[in-house]
Design a protein around this nucleic acid. Structure first.
Lengths: 221, 221
DNA sequence: GTAACGCCGATTGTTTACAATCGCAACGGC
DNA sequence: GCCGTTGCGATTGTAAACAATCGGCGTTAC
């Protein structure tokens, strides 16, 4: 076959559609609450509706899509209470995942983290900030081969992605403390000070949750 | 229709199969690593293979089933490292879920907890102990309407169910401290002492994890 | 005797066609 | 004019048939 992605790989159609749709949702191409029609998706991918159903079920399990029997599929929408719940979970398990990674991160990766933190300081574009922030956090977690924790954290990030975007649009941090904290965090990583890392990370997530709670209009029906 | 469950409810076949299979796996009717053939399941439920595929994908998302493209489905198997990871997650988020519930539990439910703790003291049957223990813990979490946390905790319980069973078969607690702790825990609940409750619960989960690590033979390939 | 190759059966993935269900709009009664 | 009802269209759920893939077995060459 000429192209790598021209891929008629049997048994992977559903996965491919799921990946594609997940990316589209995370990129903000679909708003929460947007209807997803099976046939549209099927046609867009040149496939039948069945792999689409597989994909939708997959994304439902990840919490990105809400299915209702005999009725249809929608992009999942979160209430403020649900979002706060997710942030509370993140606050408790991301430090754990971080602890797995602290001893494994190489200097090279730490340098990359500093780069990302600096890049975040110097951008005003929301989309770019989101991308950098996501890469920053996930890079902290990429060293350890955790089988379950990593997936769980990624899911929590994905499910809250849209609200992080909406939040960034209304909340422009006036002070530079957020960025300062990023560098402090990397410094603690370099010292392999797991306790301090956990503390900073937990505080960071908690602060975001509290700020989010001050903007209930984001979750307006 | 005559019976309530005679149910040809359209759009629910897959869910019904998933529920049935989940229960069978949790009950220990399938060993981890056991092969699951789509056609067998379909025939057993008098349905086609399509709802079965939906059900398998559902359970895969829950972590109970492992799917491999073009090859088949197996009951998920955990390594010791993965199991420890899950217990560490539980140790961090179950106390959080408990905190949601402490102020909401009624006296009636607390009485039920004491009953369950007492019943656990007086049984030697592993299956019965597992059932009681599960009801005990889930009853602690049933009062709060948490949208995500409750599901996550339930999934962790389900994924580790088989290893809890295997563990109980080799580990018969010689002392009564475990049971004593249950009653201490309920007493703390009655005082609405959330901090103490969190502490006892976290210690309980941690201790189980450490004991589990002393029995690697449970996870032998 | 051993290892590599190729065939064949079993099982899964996909497409096509059909049946059941739900939401919405138009109609008629009050 | 408002509300309940009924029929239609759109969309989803299911079944049966077909195509592709994987693993095991026997064969063959070295």
């Amino acid at each position: 076959m000429s192209s790598v992605t021209d891929t008629i790989a049997h048994g992977a159609t559903g996965i491919r559609i799921a990946d594609s749709l997940r990316e589209a949702i995370l990129a903000g191409e679909y708003e929460p609450g947007a209807r997803i029609r099976q046939e549209d998706l099927a046609e867009a991918h040149g496939a039948s509706r069945l792999p689409v159903r597989d994909a939708l079920r997959q994304l439902e399990a990840e919490g990105l899509v809400t299915l209702v029997a005999n009725t249809g599929a929608w992009v999942s929408r979160l209430s403020l209470a649900e979002c706060e719940e997710m942030y509370q979970i993140r606050e408790r398990i991301e430090p754990l995942l971080l602890r797995y990674n602290v001893p494994l991160l190489e200097d090279e990766q730490l340098d990359r983290l500093d780069e990302l933190a600096t890049a975040m300081e110097h951008t005003d574009d929301v989309e770019r900030f989101l991308t950098l922030d996501r890469e920053f956090h996930l890079a902290c977690y990429g060293a350890a081969r955790t089988s379950l924790l990593g997936d769980t954290v990624l899911q929590l990030w994905n499910r809250t992605q849209h609200y992080r975007r909406a939040f960034m649009r209304v909340f422009r941090p006036s002070d530079r403390s957020v960025h300062h904290e990023h560098h402090l965090f990397v410094a603690a990583l370099r010292r392999r000070d797991a306790d301090e890392c956990e503390r900073i990370l937990a505080a960071h997530i908690r602060r975001t949750r509290l700020e989010l709670a001050r903007h209930p209009e984001i979750f307006a029906d």
